[in-house]
Design a protein around this nucleic acid. Sequence first.
DNA 1: TATTATACTGTATATATATTCAGTATAATA
DNA 2: TATTATACTGAATATATATACAGTATAATA
Lengths: 211, 211
Amino acid sequence: MIMKDITPQQNKVLNCIKVYIKETGFPPTRSDICKEMGFRSPNSAETHLRALEKKGFISIASGASRGILVIDEEKGFYEETAETDSYPIIGLVAAGSPTLASENIEKQVPCPPNFFGSSFDYFLRVKGLSMKDAGIMEDDLIAVQKTHDVKNGDIVVARIDDEVTVKYFSKPSSDKIVLEPANDDFSDIEVDLRSEEFFLEGKYIGLIREN
Amino acid sequence: MIMKDITPQQNKVLNCIKVYIKETGFPPTRSDICKEMGFRSPNSAETHLRALEKKGFISIASGASRGILVIDEEKGFYEETAETDSYPIIGLVAAGSPTLASENIEKQVPCPPNFFGSSFDYFLRVKGLSMKDAGIMEDDLIAVQKTHDVKNGDIVVARIDDEVTVKYFSKPSSDKIVLEPANDDFSDIEVDLRSEEFFLEGKYIGLIREN
DNA sequence: TATTATACTGTATATATATTCAGTATAATA
DNA sequence: TATTATACTGAATATATATACAGTATAATA
């Protein structure tokens, strides 16, 4: 992205915004910027904000108070080589809950983005022992990549009627999916796509066990 | 810092705030929380916020819009130490090699130091399936803490005559150590400390599987 | 030279937002 | 049993805030 030249004064305003966020945890109002910068009119802040927005340094959420989002140029680069990203741990609630809803997030954990070779989107805490023979035990964290690109034999995270499960995936025919556990005590789950709802949450990428 | 117990619902609200900030860059209003949580009254959000404040999870800037600051217990720690350390992956070479010699280092991988709760010193690449029933599979990386402080039942990394092995540890008497596999196809290893050399490399702390 | 961008003051206002008050209901606790 | 914490609905309101409008002034373009 090409960012037009920022003027010294606009840079001051931009920095003042960054400092404000760092200190308070939320962005400033026009009035706050005025106080920091010594302006007497909120419109001084407003016009600076519009200029910064036009030049691509910030985005402004219309109508929202404190709706300033600093678009940090370095963030992209930073994130590529960065030490860690933060990934949510999602509890595998037995049934009835939308899987990735924020309320199911146990916590965020730092982890290098390329930790498992492939990229991934979240950690899922495993319940049950249906994948025991694949070395996936209760309370393990599996790194899940949100994707629909899965092959027969992949371990996937699937949802059938709000019930989330981790199993081997295979699709023997166009309207049938078989989810196979890695534990003789469990049976295969056969899904008839003509009559049943099936949603593929993602693909198993790696595993972490905290002992 | 002692934080009083958070209720499940309060945790939902807290997570919803965190997600909102992550997605928009600024904290939600009471109304925003209502939308996310499905409340019909802004006072529902308000009371939850006050409860979260009372319990020390957030602070609220009086009078300010979106004045919610998430006091992430882990954040301070997180931000300070979030830079990953570099840990060596050591190949579990069958025999004849001093374990931690540099020639056995496959590569260095970045990982947050507190990734497994306890600190650890290196990763060991597992060979064989002797710990299969404990969910430790071939080529898994186990995080090992160099220590001699192990209890019966711990999984340890031990060396007997230059041979390195991962097993359950138990010490039934002062001159006897038993290393027990988690796989019926393998037998216990009994070490007589009066006649055999035994070296405890460390303790199993956690596990990573790259798929 | 006319135009545009920058850099402000000052006033006004619709609305976004925090916050209080009045209730209802349930479960836990003393 | 009374009390407190939790978990809400619903309405009301003071004010915090974005944002538009009317100006002034300077420097840099076209």
